[in-house]
Design a protein around this nucleic acid. Structure first.
Lengths: 354, 354
DNA sequence: GAATCGCCGTGAATCGATTCACGAGCGTGT
DNA sequence: ACACGCTCGTGAATCGATTCACGGCGATTC
């Protein structure tokens, strides 16, 4: 029996440990131990407490837990762009893995704005999340470092574990870029163009492309077009500037920094009458779901994004360390129509109608 | 001067109201009022407190605030599928609006799993969010009602404010369905097919389609194909079953429950040699970004998804009520190539095979 | 049978921000 | 000059779960 609340609750009061304890006929401490250290209470009592909690619909109060225990069940996930399906996939992977460990993901979308990025990191801190996963735009924001210095660890996703020495988990972007360019060179393409970046991991893809060109032993050229953000809209703009060129300066193979950019490019080129893949081969990056449904299905390099998200969670929770995951996330080339070797006139596939 | 902490913090201790108060030479209460009721403290002191807070990097502790004040700055957003760009758009709109009011969005993705839906709602409750926005699968989960009965309001998004009498915000799906079907009928299509649902708002789209057919005064037929989830993969499957039909049972106009489904259908049909829009007109729903980049750019019905998300936040925060928003979110038909009127005297009833 | 140990449950202090109730200080009307 | 009212700052209680330190009690051992 609790003293009458000064301000009556909106509808019915939320059950607390006290209520559960009263119903189970034990002390509040016992109820708490039942949830946090089940082994500390006898099986008999444990059952009684759990039953009481269940009957009352006890949900706990993470605020109180955090205030006292200092950490919450939530992990923060900061992505730079919710519009990019890759981040959605990373988020999905992270969420599933977190759920498997009774944790939750706080998803924040900075939309490439440094200011919102700061605001969200500050929010994460005020929430005392037990860790932050960041798939950030460019550099590591200073706030992340501040957060870590105050005790909240973080993991970068999609950024190579380079000289920066921050904990990071990433597919091998350099290798993926190499795959893409080697594929084009093997088809006989010689005037390559890379569109994308600057962006830490996109630049790694570019590095891979460069290496493929250098290793090919062929007299191949490589041109680099930088863009601001890598969206479909920007891709279309790039295609327009390309179309203004004289024919001899036109590339015959393009590697795009990501699929959105590639789709925009593809659309712009096709509309202008460029034949893909006859006139030009195109390889995207990320292998988003829509790559398959493009005007011409898009060849792309795939990373196991969901696995990356899950890996980041495992890293934060200390289930695995960076060593354990070395080389587990290998990129894979998914060949579709935008880069099929030219096989004479393209036949319209015959209808499978019976 | 605080007593020495029993367990020293991980790295450096997080500043609290006490620290700020000491630095500013005021009491803890004054610091708190400075943030929660700025008018209550004199401008002079306010400046001093804010300066002290800034110097210390004070971030506050939402756990403590919540514990005492009973509510947090966060709003919960539960979506059923992060893979659907529509929900990403809703989330983006909600996030921006929330940020404008100093609030934050906790984004949870149930991936159409009722169990995870429950888990997340429970998590929201343990977080004492000040409200929940739900874009759920089918019925309103009982947990949502329980949540409300314990004082946390919710708003449904994308579900019509029908007889259920739950607060909801939604585009006019019935009208959107009507737009789509009327468009097809105006082109002379007479054998219509609707693929999608069952799903509350998809069924409203279907109702609109039905009304358009009824109102047309034409001898048009309408067939309905139900699917489980509305993904591109399922769309392809539907296309396969369609292709097994005899020619005379083949539809000449399709309205899809959403764009993912439409893209899958489109892909399956095109690969099989069906000419779109000559043999068959197709209209999707949602107007996702990729509609424009499809094999044949997809005609679609657009709702202002971001505005819906923003509206839901305004509703929860009590900035506007449902009345204020009546009829503000009108659907719009975006005509692209999958439904262009057939140029020239092409017989509408040509067989689906070239 | 007594001493000891370990199991298991409990009372009470605690985390940090909020907010109530109080009062110091000061200006003003008559 | 006195009382009154207003502004603005403060001490202290409070939210709910966690966890420390303690103790009751049954079992084991000599």
């Amino acid at each position: 029996m609790t003293s009458p609340p000064r301000r009556p609750r909106a509808v019915s009061s939320v059950p607390t440990v006290g209520d559960v304890a009263a119903r189970a006929g034990v002390s509040r401490a016992t109820v708490s131990y039942t949830f946090t250290q089940p082994d500390r209470v006898s099986p008999d009592l444990r059952r009684r407490v759990l039953a009481a909690a269940d009957e009352l619909g006890y949900v706990g109060n993470d605020a109180a837990r955090r205030l006292r225990a200092g950490h919450s069940l939530a992990l923060g996930l900061l992505v730079s762009s919710a519009a990019n399906p890759v981040y959605a996939e990373i988020a999905a992977g992270a969420e599933a893995e977190a759920a498997a460990h009774g944790r939750f993901i706080l998803l924040a979308n900075s939309d490439e704005s440094a200011e919102r990025e700061r605001a969200y990191l500050s929010f994460f801190e005020s929430q005392h999340v037990s860790g932050v996963i960041a798939a950030p735009v460019g550099d590591v924001p200073a706030e992340l470092l501040g957060l870590r210095s105050r005790g909240t660890p973080f993991v970068l996703v999609g950024v190579a574990p380079g000289p920066h020495s921050y904990p990071a988990i990433s597919g091998d972007n350099e290798r993926g870029g190499h795959l893409a360019a080697a594929h084009l060179l093997a088809q006989g393409r010689r005037r390559l163009l890379f569109a994308g970046g600057p962006h830490p991991h996109v630049d790694l893809r570019l590095a891979g492309v460069r290496r493929a060109v250098a290793e090919s032993g062929q007299p191949a050229s490589l041109e680099v077009v930088r863009v601001g953000v890598q969206t479909a809209r920007v891709g279309e703009e790039v295609s327009r500037t390309l179309l203004e060129r004289p024919e001899r300066d036109f590339p015959d193979g393009i590697v795009a920094g990501n699929d959105l950019l590639a789709l925009g490019l593809l659309h712009g080129l096709i509309v202008a009458g460029v034949r893909v893949p006859e006139d030009l081969s195109l390889v995207g990056y990320d292998d988003i779901e829509f790559a398959d449904f493009a005007i011409v299905p898009l060849t792309s390099v795939r990373h196991p994004s969901a696995a990356l998200g899950a890996g980041a969670v495992r890293l934060l929770l200390g289930i695995e360390d960076e060593q354990d995951m070395q080389g587990r996330f290998e990129p894979e080339l998914v060949v579709r129509a935008t880069s099929l070797p030219i096989a004479g006139p393209q036949p319209v596939s015959s209808p499978p109608i019976g």
